[in-house]
Amino acid sequence: MKKSIALFTAIVVSTVLLAGCGSGNKTTTTATANSKKLVVYSPNSEAIINTIIPMFEKETGIKVELVSAGTGELLKRLQSEKENPYADVMFGGSRSQFVQNPDIFQKYVSPNDKYLIDGHKNTSGYITSYIADGSVILVNTKLIGDIKIEGYADLLNPALKGKIATADPSSSSSAFAQLTNMLLAMGGNYTSDKGWSYVKKLFANIDGKIASGSGAAHKSVADGEYIAALTYEDPSASYVKSKAAVKIVYPKEGTVFLDASSAIVKGSKNVDNAKKFIDYIISKNAQDAFGSQLTNRPLRKNTKLGTYMTSMDKINLIKEDTTYVDKNKTNIVKKYTDIFTSIK
């Protein structure tokens, strides 16, 4: 999923820093008990950064220095700096990416963790989930006419051939999440012939129309170029919030929501402030902001949701086997690629 780079007062985004803080040019910072500094590495969107960071700064008096880049790039940076870390907190990225890099994060369970929804609490001892994003179908309400789209099965309608937008599951994390979601929803697991048969039929109906990225997929529906897109909830809800001619369909066969996570960097020089940040992103104020000011799915119980967001009790939720998917991602992508190649 593409992430925007945020630039705003009191938060420094430095590509020079990313280029110059490698293992050969480590920077040492001496923290004090009265430190009012926090270095945050984040792949998050501009909307999240520009809302949550200033709220945290105002409430705590702590000034955030932000380094913004893609999740993979930031994790590589953290690995290269682990003998002398510059960052205090990693804010964003999928839970599986944190699981794959346990050596660069340190143990911390926030006292606010007990307020999170069951299934999203910090069971690892170091990973704090703060929002979740689900795989959805975005539909253009002006183009849909009398075509019914309530779930994955409806996307096989011949009337939709060549009119469904999607990114490439082999290169887009959101498209890969859609792939595993539909395998689970349509086949019951990730290996069944029924699930993979559905994938083959769907991509035949997509008719080779693969978008350049996840952003291009949902934008093409909002712009009226395609009837439907396989995409994710956050940008879809932003279109609904801005009253675009779209609607969000949560597949009736089941929707998977995957957590975005945060953790304290091992060896943090401002660890007390890092703990305050982790506490804050799952506080009532921040979680209400995610759900009512932004277009993200909060994970704290009894949080506010904007009218443009659908209540979880109205969505058929199914649970991803993240352990299996993490271990078998290469095989899943290969099978998809073989199918896609065979129908081109």
Rank of each mutant, 00 (worst) to 15 (best):
A216V: 09
E253K: 04
I137L: 05
N328T: 10
F56R: 00
D223G: 07
I206H: 03
L116C: 01
K241I: 04
I117C: 03
K148S: 12
L305I: 12
V39F: 06
I282P: 09
E46F: 05
G254L: 08
S80R: 04
Y324T: 03
L230R: 00
I282K: 01
Y239M: 14
N205Y: 05
A33D: 14
K276R: 09
D313F: 02
S261K: 05
T322V: 09
A33W: 05
V13Q: 15
S236N: 06
M182N: 11
L156P: 13
A204E: 15
P298E: 12
L7G: 02
G208L: 15
A244Y: 06
G213V: 07
A211Q: 07
N50W: 00
F56N: 10
Y130D: 14
A167I: 02
I318H: 07
I315Q: 00
I52D: 04
N189Q: 03
S262I: 11
N157I: 08
S262H: 07
Y280F: 15
Y250W: 06
M182P: 09
I339Q: 03
I339T: 10
S262C: 06
K334L: 12
Y86C: 02
E46N: 13
P111V: 06
T51S: 09
S4N: 00
K161S: 11
A204L: 15
